[in-house]
Design a protein around this nucleic acid. Structure first.
Length: 944
RNA sequence: GCCCAGAUGGUGGAAUGGUAGACACGAGGGACUUAAAAUCCCUUGGCCAGAUAGGCUGUACGGGUUCGAGUCCCGUUCUGGGCACCA
């Protein structure tokens, strides 16, 4: 019987849909297991063979867990909001919803051909009102919450209001944009608008006037993770810093919990490290410096409190509010000139040329440890957004301060015994402190660090600072609050209207607030976001409904927010929605959440390390505080699948001709390499006729062949249309079948590793499936027989059970495929037809090749899906080795090995080793000292 | 600059400290065939070799630990990834 994969795969894909094979529900009698893929953005280009890699890997795991008896949730959906659909809409006028829908349908068609065990009844799309209802809801909850540093959790804002009414800002320990101080009386006297402004300082979702990454070409602001090397991640356009009023999420409040949580989850070390870097915790001290001849003072942040005696100048960030206060009249012109210079520079300029720039403010600060007056400078190397936007400069022990001091000829005072700072600064945190205070200098305070190690000096200084009220110990994080507004159309609208310039939430029972229609998807002529083009986009507070903008009277009808939410909004809690996707009354019911808990295995790309994977963890922690999610961490184990790269082919055109020369001969000519479509190349040999038809300009191309063939060059590059190296999974499925594709993708190499796609190798996987099929079939009937299997057959099977079970648990699928091949070859040469062997074989291969296994399972007489079969049990006793190998070492060297039948007793072994030693070859007049048995642990046997 | 990961044949890649190169591709040879496809068999790290027996060498480079190192330790080079005027 032929292995007709086309018929088999079509048949089972239809059967799975008809039988709802993969539909799951909460079942108290079974342990749950939640497998999740990062849901895709449905781009217009469709899927290439790289996309399904992670889906296949997780599908294998999901199917395996189900065979092991778990109730497996394996859902799929779409991250449907995104820039490409909007750009396309701007160019063509086609509504993004239409483009997105078409792309989703294409994705679904492609996915369905690969045979995944997704429960499609749980599909979510972030652009559907039923879904983004809960994105808006979460935003409103964040707006209505503040972060309490004492109880380490989000709390209702009303609690804070109550506190203000009784005690003002006294005694609060909360996350805040800036420190405000007011009494209860002052609070109670504030106007309503004023109170709202104050509360904005504490809300987890707040409207903040902050420096944002503004991308003029995209016409929108971007979050930090969307900016790479000073340009936008999408499109590569320049980004500038701009002060703008934007919605922000107080992610920074969760910095410590985001850091601590990493120790409780099974992610790769490199990904955890990336997140730790991004969060960037640093412990230090804030120390107050008084301004000379003034009652002003300011605070700096330092991690090197031990270097107080080496401060020779101070530096302010150009954007710091202190600049205006501390600039003296004489220096005003110079400072203004410098500020305008800095303003012109983009983020990119700053990164690409790091020249030392700065200007003296005219003021001096008094060092509280030495009493010296240090000049206060202004320089762009100090960042406004970190610490206090002001630093104390210790040029001897900080390379940036050093460069600045050298450039502007400022003094450098070394503080570590024996360090040489004539050429460069000494940044290391090791050594013995000296010059603190300097010898011969009258001490300003009764305090010395001399003789201590740097670590001791840091601790001692912090202690002194705290005890003498000179400042406080402080932990700073690099993690910033997330900018949550985007000036785009195709995103979730904010459920917000404006009254007296202050944002108001529309009542939660009115959610979702649906995205309005617009004529144009571009910003308005007055520079407002695209939603400014919407005619019906005002909120009527009497009817609680969206009405025409012409009705705005700012009494009962108010303008609605024109920004939309960013891409990460919809992807931050989608895993919770899959648990209960159709619930109209809640993001997820308590019952569903307490059953499915969190994602046990999450598979996706590592490029989301500082974006989605941070935001999602933050979002989930917030929902955890609210009691909506029962687990603090959303993704227990995470596997990053490596990218599949393209393997591009090249032809070599002789310059100024239409003649192409084969790879081996190209060095004899002056040639230009050109990408050629990999689909008309087979085994690096070009189909020259197809090439002539490929492009009109090549219709008359001539070729210089070698051995009658045109051999192409190749290179590994990103898989993309412009390189003509995109391989489409549909094509592979059509030619070899989905099972072959699945097997081959797993066989290519470790899931986590990036690797190039090479269609040539797929024959091996296809041949294997045919051999596997032939194990079961005679010429035209099933060849499976009953009867007792032989020890050799049992050994083959159990070796495989052991290997495959371990491999799936460890995600090393690439080594289980060879194990299947070996077992199949062994059983073929044993002419094994025994049901007791073959039936478990079918179950073992089911996660990898679901279609062929269903077909064989049915042929073996089963009426239910193989998904409900049981994973075969491994039994060690069938794996007994026939022989034991001994490595014999004497005189300090491994000399030879001998094999013995398993179970040979020591006396026999000893005799054999002695006899062996007596053979002329090994007699060297020395004593045997050790015998090491292989395999197994080393067993040393001393022979005398 | 700092942090993390890695380097094995023509290629993708296997190897609890125990015969390095499983398995697959590619290549070469052979069988079947009028021929092709399909299928099957053999060879395939390098060097030496009476091409037999076998020997030498070999996992980026240099050392070390060990009876024994691709694997563990130290140093170097290179590649990939992350962070980066973060005080």
């Amino acid at each position: 019987m032929e292995y007709n994969f086309r018929e088999i795969e079509k048949k089972w894909q239809q059967r799975w849909v008809a039988d709802e094979t993969y539909k799951v529900s909460e079942r108290a009698d079974r342990e749950k297991f939640y497998v999740l893929n990062m849901f895709p953005y449905p781009s217009g280009a469709g899927l290439h063979v790289g996309h399904p890699l992670g889906y296949i890997a997780s599908d294998i795991y999901a199917r395996y867990k189900r065979l092991k008896g778990f109730n497996v949730l394996n859902p799929m959906g779409y991250d449907a909001y995104g820039l490409p659909a909007e750009q396309y809409a701007i160019q063509t006028g086609q509504h993004p919803a239409i483009t997105t829908e078409a792309n989703i349908n294409r994705y679904r068609e492609q996915l369905d051909k690969i045979g995944f065990s997704f429960d499609w009844s749980r599909e979510v799309r972030t652009c559907e009102p039923g879904y983004y209802h809960w994105t808006q809801w979460a935003f409103q909850k964040m707006f209505g919450s503040f972060y309490c540093n004492k109880c380490h959790s989000a709390q209702p804002i009303e609690q804070l209001v109550e506190h203000f009414e009784k005690e003002g800002s006294d005694g609060i320990d909360v996350a805040q944009s800036e420190e405000l101080n007011f009494t209860a009386a002052e609070w109670n006297a504030m106007s309503d608008v004023n109170k709202q402004q104050v509360l904005m300082n504490y809300r987890i979702a707040y409207l903040g006037e902050t420096m944002v990454n503004w991308c003029p070409q995209l016409g929108t602001v971007l979050a930090n993770d969307e900016v790479v090397d000073g340009v936008s991640e999408r499109g590569g356009f320049p980004v500038v810093q701009k002060l703008m009023k934007q919605w922000c999420l107080r992610v920074s409040a969760y910095a410590q919990r985001l850091l601590d949580g990493l120790d409780t989850i099974q992610w790769t070390d490199s990904l955890k490290e990336t997140q730790r870097n991004w969060i960037g915790r640093s412990e230090g001290a804030e120390i107050e410096f008084k301004v000379k001849d003034s009652d002003k003072s300011f605070t700096i942040f330092t991690t090197r409190a031990d270097t107080m005696f080496g401060v020779t100048f101070m530096v302010l960030a150009p954007e710091s509010e202190l600049v205006k206060e501390l600039t003296t009249a004489e220096q005003k012109a110079a400072v203004d000139e410098y500020l305008s210079y800095v303003k012109k520079r983009t983020e990119r300029d700053r990164i690409s040329d790091r020249k030392v720039t700065g200007v003296f403010s005219g003021s001096y600060a008094i060092n509280p440890f030495t009493g010296e007056a240090n000049p206060i400078w202004i320089s762009e190397y100090v960042l406004a957004g970190y610490g206090t936007g002001a630093i104390m400069a210790v040029p001897a022990h900080d390379s940036r301060d050093y460069a600045f001091a050298k450039h502007f000829n400022l003094p450098i005072v070394p503080l570590v015994e024996g360090c040489d700072v004539s050429e460069e600064s000494f940044d290391a945190k090791e050594g013995i402190v000296c010059n603190s205070p300097r010898a011969g200098v009258q001490p300003y305070i009764d305090f010395s660090l001399n003789g201590l190690t740097i670590k001791e000096a840091i601790a001692a200084t912090k202690k002194y600072v705290r005890e003498h009220n000179l400042g406080r110990v402080k932990v700073n994080y690099r993690l910033r609050d997330a900018i949550f507004s985007r000036q785009r159309y195709w995103g979730e609208p904010f459920p917000v209207y404006y009254k007296d310039g202050m944002p108001q939430m529309i009542p939660s029972e009115c959610l979702p607030l649906e995205l309005p229609e617009v004529d144009k998807f571009l910003p308005t002529e007055t520079g407002e976001p695209p939603l400014g083009n919407a005619k019906i986009w005002a909120w009527d507070t009497k009817t609680n409904s969206v009405v025409d903008c012409s009705a705005i009277d700012n009494v009962t009808v108010f303008p609605l927010e024109l920004n939309t939410m960013p891409g990460f909004a919809g992807s931050s809690a989608y895993y919770l929605r899959y648990m209960d996707p159709h619930n109209p009354g809640a993001l997820v019911s308590q019952e569903a959440d307490s059953y499915w808990q969190n994602v046990d295995l999450y598979v996706g790309g590592s490029e989301h390390a500082t974006g989605h994977l941070i935001y999602s963890r933050f979002w989930n922690k917030f929902l955890f505080d609210l009691g909506v999610s029962c687990k603090e961490e959303p993704f227990q184990k995470l596997v990053n699948q490596g990218m599949i790269q393209g393997r591009s082919n090249f032809v070599y055109r002789i310059k100024d001709t239409n003649t192409f020369v084969s790879l081996g001969l190209k060095d004899k000519y002056d040639t230009t390499p050109l990408h050629v479509d990999v689909n008309i190349v087979s085994g690096d040999v070009l189909d020259v006729e197809a090439f002539r038809k490929w492009r009109p300009e090549y219709a008359t191309a001539d070729f210089i062949l070698e051995d009658g063939k045109y051999v192409c060059g190749w290179a590994v590059e990103k898989m993309s249309k412009s390189m003509f190296n995109v391989v489409n999974p549909d094509m592979i499925v059509e030619k070899f079948g989905a099972d072959t594709l699945r097997l081959y993708e797993m066989f290519l190499g470790p899931v986590e590793q990036a690797k190039p796609w090479d269609t040539n190798g797929i024959d091996g996987s296809h041949r294997f499936l045919k051999k596997f099929w032939n194990l079961f079939w005679g010429k035209d009937a099933l060849a499976v027989t009953d009867g007792e299997p032989s020890p050799a057959e049992l050994k083959s099977l159990h070796k495989l059970i052991k290997k495959v079970s371990e491999d799936i648990e460890n995600f090393s699928y690439n080594t289980s495929i060879p194990a299947f091949m070996i077992a199949t070859n062994e059983l073929t040469s044993l002419k094994c037809t025994k049901r007791a062997i073959l039936e478990p074989m079918v179950v073992l291969i089911a996660p990898f090749a679901p279609h062929i296994s269903e077909e064989l399972w049915e042929a073996l007489g089963h009426s239910t899906s193989i998904c409900d079969a049981q994973w075969p049990e491994f039994n060690e006793k069938y794996l007994v080795e026939d022989t034991v190998k001994m490595m014999v070492a004497f005189n300090g060297k491994t000399r030879f090995s001998i094999e013995f039948p398993a179970g040979t007793d020591n006396a026999t072994i000893e005799a054999a080793v002695r006899a062996h030693e007596m053979t002329p070859k090994y007699v060297e007049g020395k004593q045997i000292v050790k015998v090491i048995i292989v395999p197994g642990r080393m067993v040393n046997m001393v022979l005398k």
